[in-house]
Design a protein around this nucleic acid. Sequence first.
DNA 1: TTTATAACATACCGACTGGTACATAATGAT
DNA 2: ATCATTATGTACCAGTCGGTATGTTATAAA
Lengths: 193, 193
Amino acid sequence: MVRQREFDEDAALDAAMRLFWEKGYEAASLTELTARMGIQRPSMYAAFGSKKELFEAALRSYTQAHAARVRAKLQSRASVKDAFRALFEGIVADEYEGSLNRGCFSINTMVELAPHDEKFEILTREHQLYLSVIFQETIERGIRAGELDTALEARGTAQALLVSLIGLTVMLKSRPDRQFADNTVKTVLTLLR
Amino acid sequence: MVRQREFDEDAALDAAMRLFWEKGYEAASLTELTARMGIQRPSMYAAFGSKKELFEAALRSYTQAHAARVRAKLQSRASVKDAFRALFEGIVADEYEGSLNRGCFSINTMVELAPHDEKFEILTREHQLYLSVIFQETIERGIRAGELDTALEARGTAQALLVSLIGLTVMLKSRPDRQFADNTVKTVLTLLR
DNA sequence: TTTATAACATACCGACTGGTACATAATGAT
DNA sequence: ATCATTATGTACCAGTCGGTATGTTATAAA
């Protein structure tokens, strides 16, 4: 049997992910999706099942890559404070230097779909939980290394930092003054005593 | 001249606001909007101009009421720490006790529309800015009263608290454990030394 | 070379979208 | 009472939505 598939599924998924990330679920039409993916509608349905399933695959792909990126960033510096500062400042810099303004795909999904679709409520919750664990482990590393106060409550601090990161990402969508953002980051980081 | 308008514009706007708040701009259809508003489509167009303009009017109405509510909450207690705690814990309690999960209309709009529509980028930015000023004034009141450390940087702390509130509101959409939310609030409030 | 299989492209489906033309009903000014 | 004006309700518009039926093309087994 068999004519073999002519397009690269991963590349197509990646293209779909970028459009969903930029526009959200509803506003990304099948016409534009398949155009960006470089395939026809029936090919998309054969490969991914439906628009919702395509979206879910895109989100899973994103969260996996995103978690790895965050972990790498936090491990890239000996100093835990420096690592978190680099993470937060990187978010700010990306938003001001890029012309786009996509924010975080998982956060966008939390706002658009999680309240109405349990599947995405769970998916996004698990991602946030995972990030909070990465944060907590990083803080614990700083405590062990003597950089951070042993009295610091690692879990609560990790959660507060994560919430701040989410808030910062959302706030940047309204494009506040750069100074506003920078100053916010500076204060948030004082959570790491 | 003139037959007079039979419906209450404010009540209709309020109904529209609630649906936009719950579903967002795209997902709220004119059919459902006008049904909830209790009017026909031509009446809506005569009174508000277009779906976008109706949405804008709804958002303006929301932000005005929201700012007043936040200010009242922050002024409701002598202790500034208590006031902020009440504000944050109120957000958490509302989300867990209500069955709905609307979050904040302004935040939802920031995520859905601000990146693609300058009008809503500006509208939401101004609202956040306004809230940050309310926060700052409250913190300054606490400093003057001797409750808070005079070394506390009021503006930065206000911004950090606002970002945390936004992050918390968004995070709640994924319905994390209540303990997770409560613990986060506790740590965030340590920004107020 | 024939044949079964699956991916391809085209062209279409009913449903719904935001928006409006039009006829009717109601009101105040004359 | 007439008339101009405006709100209301119905019924419709073209366009787009997500999804699919169908005919064609390519491929590997036989």
